[in-house]
């Protein structure tokens, strides 16, 4: 299952809620969700811990737009929109954590 998160983990509990609930699989960070995969944030340790259970992807155009393309946490998988489509296609279902 693909879980899509679009909120900053520094202002919203959405990512945390997703990590605590989802069984595993793929997580894709888009829009303001991309702040979760940058180095040096207060939530980096939590993200790294989650990477043992989930494959974590980030929509690079969103990260680049926010000026943080060079701070990607190691091991996070960058995708473009075509990669996003591929993730949605290869998982049986997807949930947007709105």
């Amino acid at each position: 299952m693909l879980h899509i998160v679009n909120k900053s983990p520094l202002t919203s509990n959405t990512l945390e809620s997703c990590l605590n609930t989802a069984m595993g699989g793929d997580i894709l960070l888009i829009e303001d969700g991309v702040y979760a995969v940058t180095r040096g944030t207060a939530v980096e340790a939590k993200l790294r811990a989650a990477m043992g259970k989930f494959r974590v992807h980030v929509l690079m155009p969103d990260l680049d737009a926010r000026g943080l393309g060079d701070r990607l946490v190691e091991g996070v998988l960058p995708v473009d929109y075509a990669g996003f489509v591929e993730l949605a296609a290869s998982n049986k279902t997807c949930q947007s954590w709105l």
């Binding site: 679009n6 155009p61 473009d80 929109y81 075509a82 996003f84 489509v85 591929e86 296609a89 709105l98």
Partner: peptide, 26 residues
Amino acid sequence: VNEGPYQHQASDSAYLFTKAAIENGH
């Protein structure tokens, strides 16, 4: 698409996703 244009990125994301899906044969 649950949000209006310009206020929220949702419509942009949806559009770019849709375009990429079509370009990739879906």
